[in-house]
Design a protein around this nucleic acid. Structure first.
Length: 720
RNA sequence: GCGCCCGUAGCUCAGUGGAUAGAGCGUUUGGUUGCGGACCAAAAGGUCGCAGGUUCGAGUCCUGCCGGGCGUACCA
C-alpha cells in the first residue's frame, strides 16, 4: 500500500528528471526520518549534484590539484544538491496528490496526505483483522527444522532459545506468504542415550520416577553417567590447573609427596606426580601403575588447598620460597569447591575405565537390536517425549512433522553406499569420508573433509543428516530447507549442503543454516555435568510465580483461573521475548534476576500497551465506520499511524533475511509509539470528529499489536 | 595455520550507505478529579575497538591490525 505510493513518488521524480535533462534513474525512496512527518524522501539530488560538478566542472575547481579538487567538490555537493532538490520540488509542486513537497538539506521530501492515507491504513486493518500483515502467496515450499532436543537429557534455556527462534521464524515465514512445514528432529539415539541407559541399568535398575518428573529424572541419570565417564578427566583437569596456576601448590609438592608415600608406597606413581607437578607438565590419565594412587592423594590435595587459602587470606605467614604471587582467596574457594565435589566421588576413580568398556558393550546391544535394550529404550524415550510435549504446549510451539534419529540410521547407511558408488566419498584412514575441497577443486582449505560413517560401520550424526536432508527434498517436496541450530555447527552445515550439491540436488542452493549463539550464565558456559545449568522448568516456574505476584497486586479482583492464565501469558511471553530481542549471532548471558523483571524493553511492556488499548475500546459502544477525519494530527498520531502502516513490509523484511529479531523490535517500537500517543492524545474525552478517528486508530493499533505479538509467538491478553 | 562471530552510553543491547547515532537498565529530579503508574517526562552519559581505503556521503561496504568468543576427519 505504502510501497505503491513510494513507487509513484519515485516515478514522478523520474518524470521531472527526464524533463530537466538528467534522464531516468534507479533509486530507492526512504521514509523521512523526522518525528511527526509521514512521507517518503529521496537523496537522488546528491548523486546528481556530484555528477554535475565532476562532469561540467565548476569555476571553483580551476587550477586545483586532484586532492584539493576532491575536497572542494565535497563542499560544493551539499549546496548543489539543495539547488537540484529545489528545482525538482518546484516542478513536482504542481502535483496535488501529495500533501507537500519540499527540498530540505538536499533531500526531496514528499509528505503523504494523512487524511487519505490514514483512512486507507486504518480501514485496511479493520477489514483484514488477523490477516493484516499477510503477504502474497509465495511458491517455495519451506521446511524449518528446529528444536531438535535429545531425549534422556533435560531441557534447558539454551533449548528454549532454539525453540523460540525457530517457532518465530516459522510464524514470520508463514505470515510473509510461504507454505511452511515445521519440523522437529528428535535425538532419540546416540551416545548420550546409551550412556543414560547404561547408568540406569547399572546403578538405578528398578527405580521408578514420579509420573510428573520423568524427564528431569532421566536427565539427572544422564548427568550422573556423564560425570562417571568423565570423572578422571575432571580430576586431572583440576590437578593440572593447580600445577600451572597455583605457585604455592607447586612449591609444596615435596611435602605432599612425602605424605603420600607414608600412606601409599608406590614409588613409580609418587615420582611421576612429583615430576609432572614440579615441572608443570601435564598429568596423564594412563600413566599410573596403581589405581589407588589418586584416591590416596586426594585428601592431601584438599588439605593443601585449605592451607593455601588461609595463606592467601593472610592468616598464615607467607613462605619466602614462593616467588610468584599467589592467587586470591576467591580463586581458592572455587578450587576447594571443585575439590569437594570430586572428593565425594573419588572412589569412582579405579572403575572409570571399566565403565567405559561397559558403555561400548551397551552400544553393541543397540547395534544388534537386543530386545531387552530396545524395550527399555522405548519406554524411557517415551518419558522424555511426554516431557517435551508438555513443554511445547506451555511455550506455544508446534510441529507438523516429527523426525527421529533412530529412523534414519538405515537410510544413512544407504546414502553412504550411494556416495561411494558415485565416487563422491572414498575410504581414507579406514572410514568413508568426502574430501569436499578436493571434489570441488578448491585450492584453499574451505570445506575440508567430512567423515560420513565410523570405521566400525556405525552411523554418525552426518550419516543421518545427509539421509534426512535427501528425504526432505524427495518425500516432502521441500524447495527451501532451513535448520535452526547452534552456530558452532556452521562448518558442519556448509559441508552437508556441499555434499548435497555434489549429489546433484538443486535445492542445496536454497539451504540455510540459521545459527544462533550460546546462552551462557554469569558463572560461565552451561554444562549439565558441572551442574552449571538453568533448566527450563526451574526458570519457568520462577517466572510464573513472579508474574502471579504482580497480577495479585495489580488486579486482585480477577478470578483465580484468569489470573493463572494471564500469569502464564506474561511470564512465558517475557521469557520468550528475552530470547528474541537479541540478535541470533550474539551470546546471551542469561541473568535470572533480569528475566524476572517485567519492566522496560520486555514482552509485558508490549502486552500492557495492548491491554490499555482494549480498556479504551471496552468503553466504546460501537466502533466508528466510514470515512474518518484525520486532520491536524499530532506528532504522536502521525508516528503511530506510520508504524502500523509498515507492519506488512517489516514482516517481508524479516522473512527474507531470516531475522526474527526485526519483528521483536518492531512490535516493541509499536507499543512505545502507542504509549506516546496514549499520553498525548485523549481518546474518549476528545470532541467529534476527532474522537471517532482516535477510537479507530486505537482499534487498529490493538489489532496490529495482537498480530505482531502473534508473529513472535507471544500471547496478547486483554487484561493484565 | 585457516575460517566464522562479537566489539556502539557505566551495564545490557537496537541501528535498511543518507539528514542531529537511539532504546532499556542503573543514577538524579519530577508526573495536576484524566483512558490502568507493568506507564510517562527531564537531566546526565559517545574518539561507534584502532588505522587506512571506497564513496558526494561510512556505525553500516573493503583491507590490515588489536581485544574477546567459537569451529576446524570417525561428539552431537
Amino acid at each position: 500500500m505504502l510501497q505503491r505510493e513510494q513507487e509513484r513518488a519515485a516515478s514522478r521524480i523520474n518524470d521531472v528528471l527526464e524533463e530537466i535533462g538528467f534522464g531516468r534513474r534507479e533509486f530507492t525512496m526512504r521514509p523521512i526520518p523526522f518525528a511527526g512527518t509521514w512521507g517518503t524522501s529521496s537523496s537522488i539530488s546528491y548523486q546528481l549534484a556530484n555528477e554535475t560538478i565532476s562532469e561540467e566542472g565548476a569555476p571553483e575547481l580551476e587550477g586545483l590539484s586532484k586532492k584539493q579538487a576532491k575536497k572542494k567538490t565535497k563542499e560544493l555537493v551539499g549546496p548543489k544538491a539543495q539547488e537540484i532538490a529545489e528545482q525538482i520540488a518546484t516542478r513536482l509542486a504542481s502535483d496535488d496528490e501529495f500533501a507537500s513537497i519540499e527540498a530540505t538539506n538536499g533531500y526531496i521530501n514528499i509528505e503523504f496526505d494523512t487524511q487519505r492515507f490514514a483512512n486507507r491504513v486504518v480501514s485496511a486493518i479493520q477489514n483484514q483483522g488477523l490477516e493484516y500483515g499477510r503477504g502474497e502467496r509465495k511458491t517455495d515450499r519451506v521446511m524449518v527444522e528446529y528444536s531438535q532436543p535429545n531425549t534422556h537429557k533435560a531441557f534447558h534455556i539454551g533449548h528454549l532459545r532454539n525453540a523460540t527462534l525457530g517457532n518465530t521464524l516459522c510464524r514470520v515465514l508463514d505470515l510473509a506468504g510461504f507454505e511452511v512445514q515445521k519440523a522437529n528432529y528428535i535425538g532419540d539415539i546416540g551416545m548420550h542415550v546409551i550412556k543414560c541407559l547404561w547408568c540406569y541399568e547399572r546403578f538405578h535398575y528398578g527405580e521408578e520416577p514420579g509420573p510428573a518428573d520423568r524427564g528431569r529424572w532421566l536427565g539427572d541419570i544422564y548427568t550422573e553417567s556423564d560425570q562417571r565417564v568423565n570423572f578422571r578427566q575432571d580430576v586431572l583437569e583440576l590437578l593440572n590447573e593447580l600445577a600451572s596456576n597455583d605457585p604455592a601448590f607447586v612449591t609444596m609438592v615435596d611435602r605432599m609427596m612425602k605424605e603420600l608415600y607414608k600412606v601409599h608406597e608406590v614409588g613409580e606413581d609418587v615420582a611421576y606426580l612429583l615430576g609432572q607437578i614440579s615441572n608443570k607438565r601435564e598429568i596423564k590419565d594412563d600413566a599410573f601403575y596403581d589405581q589407588e594412587t589418586i584416591p590416596k592423594f586426594w585428601p592431601i590435595v584438599g588439605d593443601q588447598l585449605q592451607v593455601n587459602l588461609e595463606m592467601s587470606r593472610g592468616e598464615r605467614e607467607q613462605h619466602d620460597d614462593i616467588e610468584d604471587p599467589i592467587p586470591e582467596p576467591s580463586q581458592y574457594e572455587d578450587w576447594i569447591e571443585r575439590w569437594q565435589e570430586l572428593s565425594e566421588r573419588i572412589s569412582w576413580w579405579p572403575h572409570v575405565n571399566r565403565w567405559k568398556e561397559e558403555i561400548k558393550e551397551e552400544f553393541q546391544r543397540w547395534e544388534r537390536k537386543d530386545p531387552d535394550f530396545v524395550q527399555l529404550w522405548e519406554t524411557t524415550k517415551e518419558w522424555s517425549m511426554q516431557d517435551f510435549e508438555r513443554i511445547y504446549d506451555e511455550i506455544d510451539v508446534e510441529f507438523d512433522t516429527w523426525f527421529y534419529e533412530s529412523e534414519v540410521e538405515e537410510p544413512g547407511r544407504e546414502i553412504v553406499k550411494e556416495l561411494m558408488d558415485q565416487e563422491i566419498a572414498e575410504i581414507s584412514d579406514g572410514l568413508p569420508v568426502v574430501k569436499i575441497d578436493e571434489k570441488l577443486g578448491l585450492e584453499k582449505e574451505t570445506f575440508r573433509t567430512m567423515p560420513v560413517l565410523r570405521s566400525d560401520g556405525t552411523t554418525l550424526y552426518s550419516t543421518k543428516d545427509l539421509a534426512l536432508t535427501k528425504h526432505k527434498f524427495e518425500e516432502y517436496g521441500v524447495d527451501r530447507s532451513i535448520w535452526v541450530v547452534d552456530v558452532r555447527q556452521a562448518l558442519y552445515f556448509q559441508q552437508i549442503f556441499k555434499i548435497m550439491e555434489l549429489m546433484g540436488f538443486e535445492q542445496a542452493e536454497k539451504c540455510f543454516h540459521l545459527g544462533y549463539e550460546m546462552v551462557t550464565l554469569p558463572s560461565g558456559a552451561m554444562s549439565s555435568r558441572s551442574g552449571n545449568v538453568v533448566l527450563y522448568d526451574d526458570i519457568a516456574s520462577a517466572v510464573l510465580e513472579r508474574a502471579r505476584e504482580i497480577i495479585d497486586e495489580k488486579n486482585p479482583d480477577l478470578p483465580d483461573a484468569k489470573k493463572d492464565e494471564i500469569a502464564h501469558d506474561v511470564g512465558i511471553g517475557s521469557l520468550k521475548y528475552s530470547m528474541l530481542s537479541r540478535d541470533n549471532n550474539r551470546v546471551i548471558v542469561f541473568d535470572i534476576e533480569e528475566s524476572l523483571s517485567f519492566d522496560g524493553h520486555a514482552a509485558p511492556y508490549i502486552q500492557y500497551a495492548h491491554a490499555r488499548a482494549c480498556r479504551i475500546l471496552e468503553k466504546v459502544d460501537k466502533l466508528p465506520e466510514g470515512e474518518l477525519t484525520f486532520e491536524d494530527l499530532t506528532t504522536e498520531e502521525i508516528d503511530l499511524i506510520q508504524q502500523i502502516a509498515i507492519f506488512p513490509s517489516e514482516i517481508q523484511r524479516a522473512a527474507s533475511e531470516y531475522k526474527p529479531l526485526y519483528v521483536a523490535t518492531y512490535v516493541y517500537e509499536l507499543a512505545k509509539k502507542f504509549n506516546d500517543f496514549y499520553r498525548a492524545c485523549p481518546v474518549l474525552q476528545a470532541e467529534e470528529p476527532q474522537r471517532s478517528a482516535r477510537i479507530a486508530l486505537v482499534d487498529a493499533t490493538r489489532q496490529v499489536l495482537a498480530n505482531g505479538l502473534s508473529a513472535v509467538g507471544i500471547k496478547a491478553p486483554e487484561v493484565m
